[in-house]
Simulated assay, not measured.
Amino acid sequence: LHQEVRHFYKYRAIEKMLEGKTLEEAKPVIERISGNESIAYQSAWRDIVLEATGTQLPEANRRYHALLLEMERLIHHLTDLGFIPNDAGFGAALAFASRLAEEARRMLRTLCGHRFGFGAIDFEAHTLVREVFLAYLEALEKEVAFFEAWILDIPSLWDRFDTTGILKKEKAVKYDTVGVVARASGLGLDCRNNDFYRAHGFQMQIQQSADVSARFMVRLKEVQNSITMMRHFSMDRCEGVTPGSAKDGTYEAFVESSLGELYMSVTLQNGVIDRFFVRDPSFMNWQALHLMMPNNIIADFPLINKSCDLSYAGNDL
């Protein structure tokens, strides 16, 4: 009949914890706020450092960081592409997609030294073994194409997906939804919709049916688009950059994480953080989840919930 989402019982005091720290001292905490979005959080931190120090990031470094962010998106979309069918009783999809997600995590570790991308975004020089990475993308593309053909040819699965957990467009707007949830309801919202990303192959992925099937297809198409972009982002080497001293002021950053638009604001005073604020995309999408529940069977709750892939850690700061 109705679902009440109750959060904020887990208080980690992250915002207060960072007060009095320099931007560099704050980074190990910021990148661990939400393990699903570590690279996205680091990317927001990077943009604030660049703005506060007046530093320009070279094109090769920007491409390298964007590649890592797409790897993180790829991992989490692949995980969801397995878990969503699993919650409809099709465990084979979970086994297949989990293997692809694990291989992607190992590739991320090869790229930056950590399976979850901790410490991935920095201002150091990096070398990419481009041939190995491109071979990985080619193999992955074939696996994803097989997965798509396989999963689309299972009518009983789509019988569970179609018209389940609908979030109508006007409600998606009213509740300020972001990310896959918004795009599956027909909203063209994506922080990557800019000249830099479009020049490297970005294409907005939008569905209109606003149900579980729409959220599944947005993820599948974004995986394929991420593979395309990572081919364009791949480079042989990026050089080190040394940011200057951060100036006092308030700085903001927006990054499209795997879950949607991540917002971060930092106020610096006397060279250290006076106020830190972050708004995870899940903070927005959790508030709309209850709208998807009425008129569905109880067994579809986990299916609807997983199709949104909401973060507890990013919400309860």
Score class of each variant (00 low, 15 high):
F233R: 02
P155E: 04
F202V: 11
K142G: 01
V5L: 05
H232S: 12
I206F: 08
V5M: 09
E51W: 01
R73C: 09
G35K: 02
P281H: 07
T79W: 01
L303C: 04
L74Q: 09
L67R: 02
F133D: 01
Y9R: 04
Q208W: 10
S38Y: 04
A120C: 02
Y197L: 02
Q208V: 15
A214Y: 11
A172Y: 06
N270L: 04
L78I: 05
H2M: 13
S245P: 13
N315C: 11
F123W: 10
E261K: 13
V178C: 02
R219S: 07
S257Y: 02
D190W: 05
A288W: 06
N285G: 08
L140Y: 07
A299E: 15
A97P: 00
T22E: 10
S282A: 11
V218H: 04
S258T: 14
A104Q: 03
I227Y: 06
I75Q: 12
L157P: 12
E148F: 08
Q208M: 05
L108A: 01
D248Q: 06
A93C: 12
A88Q: 09
R46L: 14
F254N: 13
V178D: 03
N295M: 11
S185F: 10
H2L: 11
G271H: 09
T242I: 04
F118V: 01
F233T: 00
N86I: 00
E59D: 15
